[in-house]
Structure formats: C-alpha cells, structure tokens
Nucleic acid binder design. Structure first.
Lengths: 217, 217, 217, 217
DNA sequence: AATGAATGAGTATTCATTCAT
DNA sequence: GATGAATGAATACTCATTCAT
C-alpha cells in the first residue's frame, strides 16, 4: 500500500519485499546501479538524508522513480550501503597507514593521523558519516563500524599495556576516548565542504598529542 | 504553510508578526506555560523533535492547540528555550562542582566529573541535547553553549600551562578534545532512558584519566 | 507550512524545487490534467479561490491529493494558468469580432460588443476574472492581460484620431475608460451564475453608445 | 462557542449576540471606541481586511481583545461601519461640489471632479473602498452606496435629457458607466499609498471629457 | 528494465470569538 | 470596563513507495 509516512522518520518497513537484491545484473544494469549510488552519494553529502528525496536522485539521472526501486529496496537501504562503504574506506585507510609499523603506540598514532587525513581528503565521506550520526536509524551501522575500529585499536592498546608503554585501564574505553576526541576535532576544525577555511595543518599532531599524552605535562 | 490565511492568500510565515511583546502572565497563565514546558520536555526527550507534534503536547494537557501558540511563538521556539535551559543547568552543575577548588587541574577534573554525573542523573537533559545535535537548526544554540564551556575550560588550561602543570599546546583544542571525549563516553556508556544497563560507576575516573593523562604510561 | 518535512526541520516553501522540468505526459496523464483543470475551473468560479481547497478538487475526481501536485506546482500556479486561459479566450473573441472590419471606430465597437457577449456567454470565465481581481497576488497577471487589451484598443483610437473620427486625447486613458465602463456594466448587469435575472439584451448597444458618444447629445 | 473559522471568509454569524450596540457609552467609552475606529482604519487601509487581525487592532492600542468586542459586535461589523463612513464622506464631497451649480451637465461634471479629488486626497478612504470591493460580504454595503450615487447622478441625467443637453438613453446605465470609468481611472492612475507616482494632474479633465463626450470627435 | 501515475498520512499555524475573573 | 486565557476548525504541500503498462 503506497503513500503516507509516519512521525519521526521512518516509513513502515516493507515486510513483503523479498530480498530481490540478489538479482544478477547485466552490465548495463550494474552501470545504472553505480550511477545511482554516485548521484545519491553526492546528494546525501550535500543535502543530508532528508534533504535528498528519492525523486531528486532520479531527476539527477533523468529516470523514473521505478528505476530506483528496481535496484534498491528502499532509500534507507541505499543509505546504509553508502554508509558501509564509507566506513570500509576509512578502515582501509587506517590499515594501510599501519602496515609495516610494529610498535603498538606508533600504530595507534598512525591510525589517528590516517583518520584525520581521510576525513580531510574525503569530505564527502565525512558528510555521510555525519549525516548517519544524526539519525537513530543508522546508528546501528555506525556503531558496528565504530565497534570494529574500537576493537582494532583496543588490540594495540592491550599490546602497549603488556609492553608497559601504555598505562593500565579499560582498552575499549580508551579507544572510545580516542574516537570521540578525533570525531569532535574533525567536527570543529574541518569543514564538510572542502573549503578548509578553519583547517589547521598541525591538527594531526595536536590530536595525537591529546590522545597519547592527555593534558598533563 | 499552515491553516488560516492572512494578507489575502498567502500562507508564508508571517514576517510582520512582531513578537507581540512579551506577555504578562497571570498565575494561571504561568502555570499553564510551565505545564507545556514540562510536557514538551518529556515528549521531546522521548520522541525527538519531529516525533513530537504540537498537537501531542496539547493533547497531553487536554487543551486546544491555540493554547500552545498563546504561550509560544512556535514549536521551534519552545525547543530552543528548552535547550537553553538544559545547557544552563549543565553549566551551573559544572560551576558548582568547581567552586572552592583552586588548582586548575583539579578544576578541570571536577568539571569532567560534574558533566558525567549531570548527564547520568538527568537523562532527559541529555536526550534534549542529543536531539538538538541532530538538527542543523539548533546547532547554533548548541555551539554557543559549547563555546562557553570550551572557553571556561581553556582558561583553566592556560593557568595550568603557566604553572607548568599542563603541557603546552592550543588550549582551545585541548578543551575540545575533552568535550569530544566526554560526549562520546556518554553516548556509549550512558543510556538515555535511565535504565543504566551499560552504565559503569567508574566512568568518571576513567574519563578523567583519559583526558588528563592520555594513553601513555 | 504543510505536512512532511525536508532539510531537517523546516516547512518553508522549498526554494530548491527547481521546477522539475516540464513533465512528459501520457495520454492518460493529459486526460487527468484536463480533468483537474475542469474541476478547478468549476470550483473556483463557484466558490472563489479561497473557497476552493486543493482537497476539494481532488475529492471531486476521487483521487488522492498527491495527484494534484503531480500535475501542478501549486494551487496558485493552477489558478494562474486558468486565469491566463480566460484572458486569452477573451482576447481571441475580441480579435475574431474585429476581423474583416477596417474602420477603427467600428473595430472598437465590435470589440466592446464582443467583450460583453463573451462575459455573458461564459459566466465561468467572468467569475474567474472577478476572483482574480480580488487578490493582489493575481493582479499582476490581470494587469498584463488588461495592458494588452488597452494597447490593442489604443491603436485603434490613434488611427481614429488620425482620420479625425476620434477626438484628441490620451489614447491609453481612453482605452482604460472603455475597459472600466464595460467591466462595471458587466458587474452590474450580468450575473455570474448564468441566471440572467438582471440581464438586458440591449446592454451592448448602450455600452457602445456610452463609450463612443458619452453623455452629451 | 469560540474558535474555528470556515472556508471563504466568514465566521459563522452570531445569532445570540443581542444588539448591545445601543449601549450608552461614557465619555471615556466613546473615546476608546473612536481610538479603535482610527486604528482599524489605518490598518485596514494598509493591510487589507484579512491582513488585519482583531488582535492587531488591539495590540496597536495595547488593550486586550475583550475591549474590541465590548464596543463592536464583530470585525465584520466594524469594517461595515468604516465603509459606510467612507461612502458618506464621498457623497458629502460630491454634494458640496455641486452646491450652487444649476446646470445638470455642470453638476455631473463637478461630481466627477469631486470624486477624483476625493480619492486623490484621501487615499485611505480609497483603500477601504477597494478592500470592500474585494469581498462579496461587503459588496452589499458598497452596492447600496453606489446605488445612492447612481440615483443622484441619474437625476441630473434625466434633467439633462429633458433640456435636450443629454442624449436619450437609460439614465441608470449611464450613471453606472460614469462610475465604472472613474473607479477604473482611479485604480490605474492613483496609487493607494499617497506616493502619487503615476498620478496625472489633468486626470479630472480627461475623465470628464470621456464621460461626457465619449470617444467620438 | 523502465516509466508515469497514484497514494495519503502527517502537521504547523492563524484567528474570530467567548468568557470567567 | 477590561483582561488574559482558551477554542479548534481549516488547509497546502511532501515524499517514500507501489504498480499497471
């Protein structure tokens, strides 16, 4: 039954829609799909989740709305996919930065630097993540992604503790502290729209210092 | 735009509406106003901004919708008022915690502890702040509030630097680091709905440790 | 502002909505559109602009409200289209009546007669024009239409002056005089609702006489 | 039963409200009443009927809404009173202009001139009349007023016919022609808001010429 | 694979009018 | 005489989603 939407955000989940998503796509089909993802990425980043109507995405491509629902179960679904992609890339960037470094503290440091660089260089990804953070619906996906990063980090922290380089404490909590601080730094000092007006080059150094050494002299 | 019409045809948000001067309220009036504020607080905290219709608030009190608009210019307006109140109380809580403490580092510590306690004890306030964080519209008010807290904290940081207790660095950035870490801790370890399922009593200690000493041993 | 939300919170008339390009309509679509125009025409004529809710129009056709907005950008928009159509038909009627007549004074006379006949035979059009005259919003369109008629007439007047058949004076003003008199005659002697209670067959003759010869013997 | 309003314009007429209007007012009371009338006059002229809320009028005077309803049965009622006043003044202006003139044609001419002068000098009255013309509700009062003017004029026309100065025809219709032309002239060439941008000093002469002699040479 | 058409619930806001104090 | 408080119907417009061709 079409039409209507409910308070808050969500349109009622569609229980009948069988996971058609396992469809095999022709070459043309995959291209279409990719076009949609790209357009949506741009729009979500610029206008936010609610600011982007399914119709806007279709208009962008000059196609009817049916097309969208041929490739995606729902708007919500597409956004989730996008979000997952963003988080994957972030994680990949972190891993690449760490590769070849042995010392756990250095690994943490490289991870911090990589994150900030990533957000700086990919403001679109940052925007999508920010958008996700705004809605309870997506906090699940976000938390998953975070959990991964946190446990990655927590491993290094534990190693650091073993070797005596890192003080004792709850590794997860510490990892969360890092995450929170970085995210906030990025919020404050990085502009979503590329125009690095407020950006400061030494942000990475300062972030690293804060996370590793805290305030005390 | 809403019902009724004015100026011939249009429904556009009435630009003339010069805030019909601040109303004088009778005792009954103030009580009503307070009732509205309370109901709205509860609903906003539970259901979010969009999840709460003006009509819901009025229904809660069993009054007509006009009543709402007798006391408040708009839904947006009421929410802002609520938000400001929340931020004020937070700040007050921080100030009270600091009173009587001289050492800047201790003041910072007390501030951190007070914030976490505040959020823990007043989940409603936390919920409202969270809700505000979700909407660009309110980020202004939120940022103001944050700016105040940051500059409060930065002052202590500077003093700590002078006395050599705090390492050198950008005080504002450090203050933001604290803010970000705490807010994230609260997000992760505190539930909005009182049910302290995930809560951990030692959260304050750990937060203080992270902010002051970072990770390193 | 109306239901639904976009861009986070706000209901303000969506400034981005770039007229989603002119739609291609299928046969069924054009028919639907036409049905809407007809229903709206009837309702606007009978009940006036404000007396006609978008919902009324849709109810008339037994369709959902979305249908209206599939075909028209807004209620205002539809009304403007309707109004333009009315004015066009009026002008066309005038042109047809003039065709084949050379003498400028006769052309003016035929124009006057055609106008009155038009209003008499198409009370619906008259009603729409009247309605438009009631609202500043639409006076623009109306004035444009008037301006056209006035300048058409003024041309004949000038020719008449050249040939000495029409006394000297400001042609535009004279044209406006004709317009005003006719419109008023129609207001007074023609009923919008077909019931030609007050109608008088010789109205055309009398109007012509007044406009051409004034009062004097 | 308070609240609510219906499509179109009108709130349901209040059948119970006994004509309290015959109240005798104290001196202070009459002053209040006069203040309301004045404020309403200004607002109606500036903002139109719907553009002026009862609350606006009261705000202007800094009094509660009850005051308004103490002195007037309804908004509609007040407007009618105002309108009647305007029409009276117009008629008075016309009479004064005619006094002492015997020749019927001259009387008509003086009447025309007086009307235009009146509208030019009292843009507020014009605005109120215009506003009234916009709403069916008030067309009654307006038509009454017009009827008076028309019959006044028709008398002169008849006299002119008797003396052979005016061509034969329906006097009422001729009078309506004059009215319509003048009103339209005023619409076109006079600005409501005093700023006589488009005004032309010789408008009176031209109007007289059009009404008396029509177009022909 | 694609399209155009249709659905319809959901909501902020205004304002004439009344009435208990 | 005056006030503040309360009433509540009325309405434009959005948009995720479905479906017949």
């Amino acid at each position: 039954m079409p039409g209507g939407y409910r308070k808050g955000l969500a349109y009622p989940p569609n229980p009948h829609k069988v996971s058609r998503m396992t469809k095999k796509l022709t070459k043309r089909g995959s291209e279409r799909r990719e076009q949609i993802v790209e357009a949506a990425f741009r729009l979500f980043a610029d206008e936010g989740y609610h600011g982007t109507a399914v119709g806007d995405i279709c208009d962008e491509l000059g196609v009817g709305k049916g097309v969208f629902y041929w490739y995606f179960k729902s708007k919500d679904d597409l956004f989730r996919e996008l979000l997952r992609t963003c988080l994957q890339r972030l994680r990949r960037a972190q891993h690449q930065a760490i590769e070849g470094t042995e010392d756990p503290v250095s690994r943490i440091e490289q991870g911090i630097r990589a994150s900030i660089r990533f957000y700086r260089e990919e403001p679109g990804y940052l925007a999508v993540i920010r958008t996700a953070a705004r809605y309870d619906e997506f906090s699940g996906v976000l938390h998953e992604g975070q959990a991964t990063v946190v446990s990655d980090t927590a491993i290094h922290i534990k190693q650091g503790m073993s070797s005596g380089k890192i003080r004792h404490g709850d590794p997860d909590l510490m990892a969360h502290g890092i995450l929170g601080a970085i995210y906030h730094f990025v919020e404050i000092y990085l502009d979503t729209n590329g125009s690095a007006e407020t950006d400061r080059p030494q942000l990475e150094d300062e972030a690293v210092a804060f996370c590793l050494r805290g305030l005390l002299a």
